[in-house]
Amino acid sequence: MVQSNVLEQARAFIYSNARLLDRKRFEYLFEGGSKEEVLRALKAYQNDDGGFGNALEPDIRCPNSQPVPTEYALYVMSELDCFDADILNGIIRYLKAIAVPGGGFPLAYRSLQQYPHAPWWKIEDDGAASINPTGQIMGYLLKQKTRNDFVEEEWFKRSLNFVKKTMEQGTPAGYHDGIQWITFLEHAPESYRSIDTKRRFDEWLASPGVIERNPHAEGYVHKVLDWVTGPQSYAAQFVTEAEIEEHLSALIAEQEGDGGWPINFPAVSSLGELEWRGSLTVERLKTLRAFGKL
Rank of each mutant, 00 (worst) to 15 (best):
F238I: 01
L285N: 03
L142A: 00
D49R: 07
H216M: 09
D202I: 07
N64G: 08
G219D: 10
W121R: 05
I195M: 15
L160H: 00
S111L: 12
S233D: 11
R19D: 10
M77K: 05
G278H: 08
R19F: 00
E254A: 13
G127F: 14
P266C: 04
V6D: 06
A73I: 03
P231D: 06
L271F: 13
N132A: 11
N54T: 04
E152N: 13
L107A: 13
S78K: 08
L21I: 13
N5I: 11
F13C: 02
T240D: 05
S233A: 13
F265D: 03
E275N: 13
F26V: 00
L7P: 04
E218G: 01
P58M: 11
V6R: 09
A55G: 13
A236F: 02
F30N: 01
C62N: 10
G127Q: 15
S269L: 06
A250V: 10
G90D: 08
L160R: 02
I182N: 03
E27H: 08
A235H: 08
N64L: 14
I87E: 06
A99K: 08
A173W: 15
I87R: 08
P262T: 05
H216C: 03
N5T: 14
A85K: 14
G174Q: 14
L225S: 07
A41D: 09
L80W: 10
D48A: 15
E254T: 13
G260Y: 07
Y175D: 11
T171C: 02
D177M: 08
E241V: 07
P67E: 13
E243I: 04
E190L: 12
Y220V: 00
A129E: 10
G178W: 05
K165Y: 04
G53Y: 06
